[in-house]
Structures are given as structure tokens and as C-alpha cells.
Design a protein around this nucleic acid. Structure first.
Lengths: 332, 332
DNA sequence: TTGCAAAATGATTGCGCAATCATTTATGAT
DNA sequence: ATCATAAATGATTGCGCAATCATTTTGCAA
């Protein structure tokens, strides 16, 4: 037997197809009696609506498009988890696009995802191409940019200031008594560059910034890279006594390398990470990190894009971050 | 201006709509001259095909449905990465469903994803409900089960034997000279239970299995839980001199707890993890783990489901695992 | 050149649904 | 009881595309 359609359900229930459609989409517009009959017929036939037909007829899809740079980065899995939570039980489903940190790829994927028009778009970062911004504006759908913050979002935005977070973290290292602080970074996307800028500002405000205190790479971040970059940093900046890491993969890698080389943390080297990915609080010693509201960003973005209760009333939501000071910066 | 349709493109190019459709879907059926004209018109108008209309008319969607228990588990992000890689550049896109380790939820989600019929389904594990299996068989689409192995898949399967992998790993601990080996496990889903069974078999084959050597929980796995479960294990099984962990979050947590409590690894306690999630090779000491072909599972599953070249010729693919012996089991 | 198959192109139709407008039925004030 | 109004239900239509079948053009052997 072929899949039942609205007409089949209508026949079974003794009503017209459109009444079935209404009974399912807006039950309050259909009398109690018919609604019950329709419900029984739906169950009996195992009717499942055809998404494509619905989308084609109404020219509205019930997808929320989510564009993220990568799936293997834990940062984004946390954000996706938040979105998934918020969407669970709603009539919306999530369509994920992986841009691989490439704006052109983002534009290409988004173009195909915007036809038919989804119910909303959640997109990472501020660095969309002009065409992408244009497309999004023309599409006339709610758009929420995430992860970063800006006074001029395409539509709405929820995130936090990477400059400030990094500046605060660096200041924490300075306040902890470290004098020669280095920066280690991988995957130097625009947000990473902002963190570097925040670091530089804090250093400059407290003395002199030397170029050799920075060791970065554009490779994707991982634990091993933390060790590699620490090697690089200590060879070009031997007096280094603390390091601020772009993210927690690196900070964990740095800690392990210190253990290997017998460098005492926090006394000989202070370590501060970023994003507080769950492992940094567990290492021995535990690693200071910047706790960022990743799941919350996802949850809020979803709420904002579907215009749910619980959504913030302003289009710009600057979430807070906190410095989780742990043993790796607790100098005696 | 409204979105251009095939008709618009056809008018622009001076051909009929169906020719445009053919030029895009099967260019070899259209003459060189028209194809070029169509291409220009498509570019000029910025035409993007309407997925819904295409799906409705052909009754085939170009989605590959992927059902996974969770997104926050690194195991599945690796698998998804493999699928994503394999699908990149093909005409297929990926539709992800999160079951949260719940077969009923899986059935519910899958039911909605099967209408319209996708091009294929990739689904984790063997524990589908009868209704789910029925649905999948009726749908008449290629189905690839992943992560586990079985002689009787719904359609195709690619994975490895969790029993055997765990048995081999446990044997490695025995061979390394450990006498009182414990098992630590979280998120005790069916595959975890198989690992436990493999552990038990190895222990029984080499002596006597005592119940107190097992410490498990159904909570989701994380690093901290490794510490908690080690506490539990050592209190109920004080003579324990090695531990096999269900996965690498736990093994890392166990190592850190040992560092906290001054337990020497590998001399006083041997540690073996599972899945080799990237961090276990970096810790100090590095942690022995069972390296499992997660990305490869994803890649192969995608190739099998879309029937691509490079796909295995048999419907059952039992991939190998390897024991990556590291410092945490290298007793002097 | 003729004839005929194969290739190229086009016209028509329906996929399943929701928007729109039309019709019927219930409700309630007088 | 009567009428006005609202609520409930139904009939028709078109969304954009691809399947199907019809027609035209091309290639090429005899």
C-alpha cells in the first residue's frame, strides 16, 4: 500500500482533506467531534505529513538552518547541543551546514539551504561575504549570528566579546604575578584574532609588548599542537613564565608538555585556557580557563530565531564570560 | 523579484523548462550549445533549484538520514565527520537525528524523516524497535547500521565487534602482568554491555571473575565520572591493580585521579581506555587505548548507502580495531 | 539523395499540500 | 420565530518540478 495522503485520511474519517489538514495544523479551528475522528483515522492509516508538499504549498519550511565552521570542534558541539535542546518538542527541525571556516563555502551552502525559505537561520561569526548578508536580508527570515558580538548584526546576535574575555584572562595572569606572558593560538579565525588583540591590549597596558611572546598557527587545534606551540614559544621567548592559550585543547597540551619536561605548573609556568571545555577542571593541576556560555548561546539563539517565549527582548545579547581561576595560575 | 523558476530560466535561455531541468540534472542528455545557454541563464538569474518541488515531483529526496544517540559524544562527532567527508561534493546532503539513546524517540524521529523517502539511512546500533525495522524495510531504501557488527543486518552494516575489542584489551592487561583487573563503565548502552561481556570473558578465561571488580553507571560519560568510578572501584575492590575503561573520557579521568591520589601509573595501576579519542596519546603517562575506526565507519557507511565507487562489495563490513599500547600499561 | 534510427527537445500532467474563497451550520439577540 | 453573525467545513487552485509521452532534429548507412 502506498503512503496515505490527506485525502485518504479524509475519506477514512468521512471529512474533506482540508479539514484533516486543519485538524493537524490548527486544531482549534476544527470541532471536537471531527478532530477526534481525524485523530483515529490518522492513527489507523499511520499517516505522516509529506514535508515537501507542505513546504511547496505554503512556501515555508519548518527548518532552522544552522551554519557552523566545524563539527569536530567541541565548542560547536556544545552550541549545537543547546540549539537542539531548545528546538526539541517544537515543530522546527535543525538543518546543519559545515562551512569548514570558508566564507565562500558558507555562501554556497546557504544559497542552497535558502530555497525554500527556512523558518530561520543561525550563523556563526560576523564574517559573512557581502553576498551572504544580501541573501539573508532578502530572504526575510529571522537571522541570529552567534559566538561573537557586534553593534550591527544582520538581524539579531547572541555571543560575547572575545577581545574583552581574552583581555580579562590576561589581566588575571598579570594579577597572579606573572611577568612574561606568552600567547599560544591555533585555528586563527577572526574570533581567535580578537582574542589575540585582547591579549595584546592587556600586555601593552601593563608594559611592553614583545612580538616573540606570540606563537600561533592556522592549523586546526588539538592537544598535541599545544605541546608543539609551547616548544616554539619557549625557544623564541625563553623568559616566558605564563601562557594564555587560545582554547582548551592547547592549554591541556601545554600542561602535558610541562609534565613531560618537568616544568612546574603554576610556579615555573602559569597556564590559562579558553572555553572551559570540561577537561581543564579535571587535570592535575587543574587549568584556569575562560568559561564561555556555549550551550546558552545555542539555546538563546534558537529561542530568538523561533520567537519563542523565553527569548530576549533585545536583538543584541551580550552574554557574560567568567574567569574560572584554578590551580594552574595559583602561584604561591 | 521572486525567486526564479525553471520556467524563468528557460525563457531567459530560449528553451523549454524541462530542457533546463535536464541540463542541470543529466547534462549528457542535452546538446553542448543549449547547455551553455542554460548555464549562462542560471548564473544570470541566480537560479537555485527548489528542493521541495523536486522531491515532491520525483518522490525521492536527496537526503541521507543519519541517526545517532548523541552529538556531544566525541565518538559520534568523529563518525559524523567521516560521513560528512564522504558526502561532500556529492548531490546528497545529511539530515541528522539525535535519539538520546532512546529507541522510541528514534522510531518517532525516523518516521517523520522517512516522509518523503530519503536516499538512504545510516543508523547507529542494532537495537531498533520492531516497528523501526519494519519501517526501514518497507521504505525500500538502503540502510546501513553502524558502530556494531551482526550477521543479520537490516540491510548493510559496518562496524566492529565490541566484545572482541574489549576481550583483546583485557587480555593485553593480563599479558602486561596485571592480576586484579577492574572494569569502569558509564553510559551503559548495548555496545558498552558488549564490552563488559568481552571483559568478563577474558577475565573468566584466565581465572575467576569477581563481581566487585565492576563499577558502572548509566550516567553519560565524562572525565570527572572516571574519578568517581575509580573511587567506587577501589573501595569495593581494594586489591585492584589495573582498570579497563569503557571509553577514553573515563580513562583520562582515572589517570587524573591517580595523579591526585599519588597512585603510580602504570606500576600501581594499569589503565586501558577505549576509542582512542586523541587525548589518551598525549597525557603523561600516555594511556593505552583501543583504537577504533570511527571516521572510517562514517566514510564507509556513506559510500555504501549511496552505492558509490569505493564502497565495499559485501553488505557486512567488520572493521578491525587495534590495541594502542602506551605507557599506562607498560609495567617495568 | 533517401530512409530510418537515435538523439535532442518539447508539451502535458500530477506529486500532496495549504491558500483562498465559497458554502453550510451553529449561536444568540431580539 | 427571525435574522445577523460567527464558526465550521468544503471546493478549487497552484506551488515548482520531473515523469511520461510526443515531436522534431540529427547522423549516417545504403
Amino acid at each position: 500500500m502506498p503512503k496515505p495522503t490527506l485525502v485518504d485520511v479524509g475519506r477514512e474519517a468521512g471529512v474533506s482533506a482540508i479539514t484533516v489538514s486543519r485538524a493537524l495544523r490548527s486544531p482549534e479551528k476544527v470541532s471536537e467531534a471531527l478532530r477526534a475522528k481525524v485523530e483515529i483515522a490518522v492513527k489507523k492509516l499511520g499517516y505522516v505529513p509529506n514535508q515537501s508538499a507542505s513546504t511547496l504549498a505554503s512556501n515555508k519550511s519548518s527548518s532552522i538552518v544552522v551554519m557552523v565552521p566545524s563539527i569536530s570542534n567541541n565548542v560547536f558541539t556544545d552550541v549545537l547541543g543547546g540549539i537542539s535542546d531548545a528546538l526539541h518538542g517544537s515543530r522546527f527541525n535543525m538543518q546543519i551546514g559545515y562551512t569548514n571556516y570558508d566564507s565562500q563555502e558558507e555562501e554556497r551552502i546557504l544559497r542552497s539551504f535558502l530555497n525554500p525559505t527556512p523558518s530561520g537561520v543561525i550563523i556563526s561569526g560576523l564574517e559573512q561575504t557581502d553576498e551572504t548578508r544580501q541573501m539573508l536580508e532578502n530572504a526575510g527570515v529571522p537571522v541570529v549570528q552567534i559566538m561573537d558580538i557586534s553593534p550591527k548584526p544582520i538581524d539579531m546576535i547572541v555571543g560575547f566579546s572575545h577581545d574583552q574575555a581574552a583581555e580579562t584572562a590576561t589581566q588575571h595572569l598579570i594579577d597572579s604575578g606573572y611577568k612574561n606572558i606568552g600567547f599560544i593560538g591555533a585555528q586563527m579565525d577572526p574570533r581567535s584574532l580578537k582574542r589575540l588583540a585582547g591579549f595584546k591590549k592587556a600586555i601593552s597596558d601593563n608594559g611592553e609588548l614583545r612580538e616573540q611572546c606570540i606563537a600561533v598557527t592556522n592549523k586546526p587545534s588539538n592537544v598535541r599542537l599545544g605541546a608543539t606551540l609551547l616548544d616554539k614559544l619557549t625557544s623564541q621567548f625563553p623568559e616566558c613564565d605564563a601562557v594564555f592559550c587560545n582554547n582548551d585543547d592547547l592549554s591541556v597540551g601545554v600542561l602535558f608538555e610541562c609534565q613531560r619536561r618537568g616544568i612546574k605548573v603554576p610556579d615555573e609556568l602559569g597556564i590559562c585556557g579558553f572555553n572551559d571545555l570540561g577537561i581543564s577542571s579535571e587535570t592535575v593541576p587543574s587549568i584556569t580557563s575562560v568559561t564561555t556560555p556555549l550551550r546558552e548561546i545555542g539555546r538563546l539563539a534558537a529561542a530568538m530565531v523561533i520567537g519563542e517565549e523565553g527569548a530576549p527582548s533585545t536583538p543584541i545579547v551580550d552574554l557574560s564570560y567568567t574567569i574560572s581561576a584554578r590551580e594552574s595560575t595559583k602561584r604561591v
